[in-house]
Simulated scan of single mutants.
Amino acid sequence: MSELAHKRILLGVTGGIAAYKSAELVRRLRDAGAEVRVAMTAAAQAFVTPLTFQALSGHRVHTTLLDTEAEAAMGHIELARWADAVLVAPASADFMARLAHGLADDLLATLCLATAAPIVLAPAMNRQMWAAEATRDNAVCLARRGVRLLGPAAGGQACGETGPGRMLEPRELVRGLAELWGPRPLAGRRAVVTAGPTREALDPVRYLSNRSSGKMGYAVAAAAAAAGAEVVLVSGPVALAPPPGVRRVEVTSAAEMLDAVLAEVAGADLFIATAAVADYRPAVSADRKIKKDSERMELVLERNPDILATVAALPERPFCVGFAAETHDVIGYARGKLEAKGLDLVAANAVGEGQGFDRDDNTLTVLWPGGERALGSGSKRELARALMDIICERLHARD
């Protein structure tokens, strides 16, 4: 990866089972042309030995704050000045808390305070620790200060639980780190992204909705931000934290999402409609819980507004990207949506049992007037980056 060629990367390793992945991360960084040096916390050494990282990096591993072998015994200052970037992977909840509070009680925390280089964290922890309010506050605080967070991913964890908190895979971290020096084709642009489902109230406790988790939309918002855009994320109800540097507007119903989008889209260069908006809503929403006093109940539904079509029809509209989630004839329906709504681009994906919704992976084919490109299968993060590359190509071609 040319962006990392000759870059000096200081890899910080904190305590956690994900530390074993950091060994592969060193190898991948070096394969990308970077020079790597490693600093380990005491807890990290309980999982992987310094000798492992010394063999992989080709340099002595740093573990001590006041290193008598370093020049003037100020090894942390030397390392802080040496680094072009600091990547902490895994970044434990404890380390994030200490960094957020400006503590300098070990080598790694101290050099993060002493460096002028960009700092990137790859969080890794139990899902409940990641969801804890204190951790979320620390993540927001660090992002506000310019610290970049890559991940975490969701999936099975060493503790036996499943959910968000897994460290991103080394190949994803290498790509995310390379973006620090890569092109930012959307710099100076403003993007509005919708994500997640909408909920249409039947009564105060029930609603119509769908299985969308919002993961694809949140990955797209993160990719747009990484490409340099100012991003507003209009989100339905999801169990996800907003990507760092992205402003989130929370909504519930399709009508609320339309109002929020129209309030934000004025002056935007790019609109990406990833949300799975409910097509219909109850014609009447009961103001009290509906009681089961009969064998059958009939619901009258009415059409929801078409948010994407509304934006695409604006006199001074942004570049409009839609998503077509279909259970069959995916490309045919996507091409019809592209033409009927006059879109600039549409991403088609199959949904249904075992694919699309509520998963970390997806399969996309991107279509535009006169062309299409299959992106294949992969993680939603990887597909979002590939999709953003095509969006940038088409946006600049239009301009």
Rank of each mutant, 00 (worst) to 15 (best):
A268F: 12
E295D: 15
G15F: 13
A229L: 12
L240F: 07
A158Y: 11
M1G: 14
D31K: 15
D279T: 10
I17S: 09
A158D: 09
A229Q: 11
A5P: 02
R136M: 05
R385K: 11
A397V: 15
A226M: 07
A397T: 13
L383H: 10
R136F: 03
A227P: 01
V234F: 07
D329T: 12
L299M: 14
E326Y: 08
N126E: 02
A276L: 06
M167W: 02
G354C: 11
E230L: 05
A340N: 13
A89E: 03
G16R: 04
A229Y: 06
P50W: 03
C141A: 13
D399L: 03
A93C: 08
A55S: 14
V234K: 04
S57R: 01
R8L: 08
C112Q: 03
T115K: 00
V48N: 04
V86T: 12
A97H: 05
F53L: 10
M216H: 05
S294Q: 14
T52W: 07
P197R: 05
E302H: 06
L108R: 04
F323D: 13
A42I: 01
D259P: 02
E179D: 04
T198V: 06
P50F: 12
L99T: 04
V234Q: 03
Q128Y: 05
G151S: 07
A239Q: 12
A278Y: 12
A276H: 02
E24C: 00
G75K: 04
L186R: 06
R8I: 06
A263G: 14
A278V: 03
P237R: 02
T252Y: 02
H101Y: 11
L107Q: 02
P282D: 02
D358T: 05
P185C: 06
